[in-house]
Design a binder for these strands. Structure first.
Length: 281
DNA sequence: CGTTCAACCTGGGCGC
DNA sequence: TGCGCCCAGGTTGAAC
């Protein structure tokens, strides 16, 4: 579920935790660890206790809390990866059953990571591990600030479909399945176009569309489709789904040219596009 | 290099 | 009403 606009909205929604000190942590039904060497819940709880949340930032589709302990003033990073159904909440969760982490601060606020499917991850790592895992070699530039030139450089020799490349977090960080379709519709590019056929000019258009769509989606606090789906930190649905031009609209008319929107499958994921006004290069 | 598949999970919706 | 099947916003690693 959560892509860049949703994670950005979550981060803004929990910004009120900055500066607060962690009093209690509970990991009921903790999610599986990203890898066997990840810290266990007990280890994390011990490190988090009486630590201060220094700041909260988004890194691609992850929320990162920088943590500092009084007695060992070295940064560590609490990283949340919501994957499909993870949510960061500061109000009561939809069910108790899927609470993966509950933090109470000394100031009596509650921060909850809730994840119905349990595919999301929580990890607490030091600076060097953080950089090894999430440095620029592992993660492309943020999708909000990608330039056409940077995109062109990254993909010009690739034979992959552009839609599949946009989902690759090494190319650019933050775009997921919903926004990839929306961006290519805005840029008027067929999702099945192979990257090496895209000119610098067309890459400029994709980068511009990327920034416009994502900024608008952030303004609307992300996309919520259905009931058990993404919510803001205070448990409200986002509103950007009202602005979707292609995602989930197969067989409906394109708003731009009235042609029927098509659904195809690429890399085992649904892609929606207008076969008339999105050009194949 | 690129593509496909399975796996990690839960639960909603659908056809029968 | 119940059962089995398919589907879902993400990521990873193995196989071809």
């Amino acid at each position: 579920m959560p892509e860049l606009p949703e994670v950005e909205t979550m981060c803004r929604g929990i910004a009120c935790f900055c500066g607060e000190i962690i009093a209690t942590t509970q990991f009921p039904r903790y999610t599986r660890r990203p890898s066997p060497i990840e810290p266990r819940p007990r280890t994390m709880a011990a490190k988090l206790h009486r630590s201060r949340i220094m700041d909260i930032t988004r890194l691609g589709k992850r929320a990162v809390l920088r943590i500092q302990h009084n007695e060992t003033p070295v940064d560590s990073f609490l990283v949340f990866e919501p994957r499909m159904t993870g949510l960061l909440l500061r109000v009561s969760p939809p069910t108790q059953q899927h609470v993966r982490l509950a933090i109470t601060t000394r100031e009596k606020q509650r921060l909850i990571f809730w994840d119905r499917r349990g595919l999301g991850t929580i990890t607490l790592i030091d600076k060097s591990t953080f950089e090894a895992r999430f440095g620029s070699h592992a993660l492309g530039p943020d999708a909000l600030t990608i330039t056409g030139a940077a995109l062109h450089t990254k993909i010009h020799s690739s034979r992959r479909h552009i839609k599949v490349a946009l989902l690759d977090q090494k190319i650019l960080a933050g775009v997921g399945n919903i926004y990839a379709s929306e961006i290519l519709h805005e840029a008027k590019v067929d999702p099945r176009t192979r990257c090496h056929r895209l000119s610098q000019n067309t890459c400029d258009r994709i980068a511009t569309a990327c920034s416009r769509i994502l900024h608008h989606a952030i303004k609307m606090e992300g996309s919520s489709i259905g009931d058990e789906t993404y919510r803001t930190a205070d448990n409200r649905p986002g509103r950007y789904q009202r602005f979707h031009k292609v995602y989930g609209r197969s067989d409906n008319k394109c708003f731009r040219c009235e042609t029927k929107i098509q659904r195809v499958v690429q890399a085992q994921r649904s892609t929606f596009f207008c076969p008339q006004c999105q050009r194949r290069y």
